[in-house]
């Protein structure tokens, strides 16, 4: 797995930094996707490709169309026009539940846990192909109990991994905001997706939990899944993403490795602001910039080696 990962990352090294750049092994490929709300063109993506097996971050200012693009890709919203494919198969007009079944599962910006179900029931719901979910076999427990047990074992493993095992029998509605984020991520994993799409996984999460969430997101990649996430937290983006796509006003304005994107003038203008890397209390901006650049270079060196 590690070899594959470094291969996938290495492959990105040769990808150009132009918006809509072609990737060597794209899992998602879309073109000319547009969505208008009234007179506003919320999404107008000429071309987008997501590399398989790496973590891709989608960043941009509020209202850039990141979440709308998420909704379009996963079938929760219909574009005015455009076509996109997952693993080479077109997803246009495919309903959201079928998109999920094909292995492209998303979470939500405002977490959607099922409050009045227990944590373990939330988890069990995620399992796919359940015999007991068919109406005519549901009433006969013997037809589905063994499968249910297997799903429960898998769910318990995931709960342990996300440190939610102590909350197993609690109602999901009693969890804290951060725990809900964890539960949602764990539940999405019950579907066993190839591509997991996280909509602002760090929003409203305290710094301590943030660290462990970062680890969880990395572990998703390490077990061979592709991750696409929307995030405003630049630390997270810098820390874990292998590739960054920047959106502004519905369009992709830049993409590249985190280091190159954050140095890109277009990105700085559209989103980060000139002093995105500096503490605003500091006065000597030039010094800090030089420092930050040095730091970035060092990091880049580190990543190369």
């Amino acid at each position: 797995m590690a070899v594959e990962l470094s291969e996938a990352r290495a492959a990105l090294a040769n990808v150009s930094n132009e918006p809509g750049a072609a990737k060597p092994d794209p899992i998602v490929k879309g073109s000319n996707i547009t969505r208008t709300f009234g007179g506003l063109k919320a999404v107008d993506v000429e071309h987008i490709e997501i590399q398989r097996g790496v973590i891709t971050a989608l960043i941009g200012p509020n209202g850039a169309g990141k979440t709308t693009l998420f909704n379009l890709l996963t079938g929760f919203d219909e574009p005015d026009e455009g076509d996109w494919a997952f693993n080479g198969k077109s997803l246009a007009k495919v309903p959201a539940y079928k998109v999920a079944r094909r292995g492209m599962v998303r979470t939500f910006q405002l977490t959607k846990v099922l409050s009045k179900l227990t944590v373990i029931e939330n988890m069990r719901l995620g399992a796919t192909g359940q015999r007991g979910e068919k109406f005519f076999s549901a009433a006969f427990k013997s037809l589905w109990s063994s499968q249910e047990d297997a799903n429960t074992v898998r769910a318990d493993d995931l709960l342990a991994r996300f440190k939610l095992d102590a909350k197993r029998e609690d109602f999901a509605g009693s969890l804290s905001g951060g725990q809900r984020k964890l539960l949602e991520m764990a539940r999405a994993l019950m579907v066993d997706p190839e591509l997991i799409m996280l909509d602002e996984p760090m929003a409203g999460v305290n710094p301590a939990l943030k660290q462990s969430l970062l680890g969880h997101v990395k572990s998703l990649r390490d077990e061979g899944r592709t991750v696409l996430f929307v995030e405003h937290d630049m630390d997270m983006v810098r820390d874990i993403s292998d590739w960054v796509i920047v959106m502004a006003q519905g369009q992709i304005v830049a993409e590249g490795t985190p280091q190159s994107v954050m140095a890109d003038q277009r990105v700085i203008d559209a989103y980060l602001g000139a002093h995105h890397d500096t503490d605003i209390t500091e006065i000597d901006v030039a010094d800090l910039e030089a420092e930050a650049d040095a730091e970035l270079d060092a990091e880049a060196e580190e990543n190369k080696s």
């Binding site: 929760f76 999920a100 599962v105 939500f108 099922l114 719901l125 796919t128 579907v191």
Partner: peptide, 12 residues
């Protein structure tokens, strides 16, 4: 509880 959550997990 939440239709969209169920949809996102692949249920019709």
């Amino acid at each position: 509880e939440d239709e969209d959550a169920v949809r996102s997990l692949g249920k019709n």
